[in-house]
Simulated scan of single mutants.
Amino acid sequence: MFQNIIDALIDIVLWLPRKLYEWLVDALEGMLDWIPEIQVADVQDVFNSLGGDMLYFLTMMEFDYGLTAIFTALLARFVLRRIPFIG
């Protein structure tokens, strides 16, 4: 009987945060409906439309290696930040 009373009190105390969370999620869903849809271009078409001069520049500057290095560094930073006592 004592456990039932404690469970009822816990339900009463937790009702407000749950209701606030529900309202927040409903509001965010409503706001996301306001955002217009974005037309995404096909990546292959974008690279096919680049001119020869731009492709030459990207090749000389080793764009593929640089992009890989940048994303690898960002991933390593993210992982290291998640380790306790380091990040």
Rank of each mutant, 00 (worst) to 15 (best):
M1L: 09
Q3D: 14
N4K: 05
N4Y: 04
I6P: 01
I6W: 02
D7F: 01
A8C: 06
I10Y: 04
I10K: 13
L14I: 01
L14M: 11
L14P: 00
L20M: 08
Y21V: 02
L24H: 12
L24Y: 12
M31A: 10
L32H: 11
L32C: 05
I35M: 11
I35Q: 10
P36R: 14
E37G: 12
I38W: 12
A41D: 10
Q44M: 07
V46P: 02
V46H: 06
V46Q: 10
V46E: 12
N48K: 09
S49M: 09
G51S: 14
G51H: 05
D53N: 15
D53S: 15
D53H: 10
M54C: 12
M54G: 01
E62W: 04
D64P: 00
D64Y: 07
D64E: 14
Y65H: 03
Y65T: 03
T68C: 02
A69P: 00
A69W: 00
A69C: 01
I70S: 08
I70Y: 11
I70K: 13
T72Q: 10
A73V: 03
L74W: 01
L74Q: 08
L74C: 06
F78P: 00
F78C: 01
L80F: 07
R82N: 03
I83S: 07
I83C: 08
F85W: 10
F85Y: 12
F85P: 00
G87P: 05
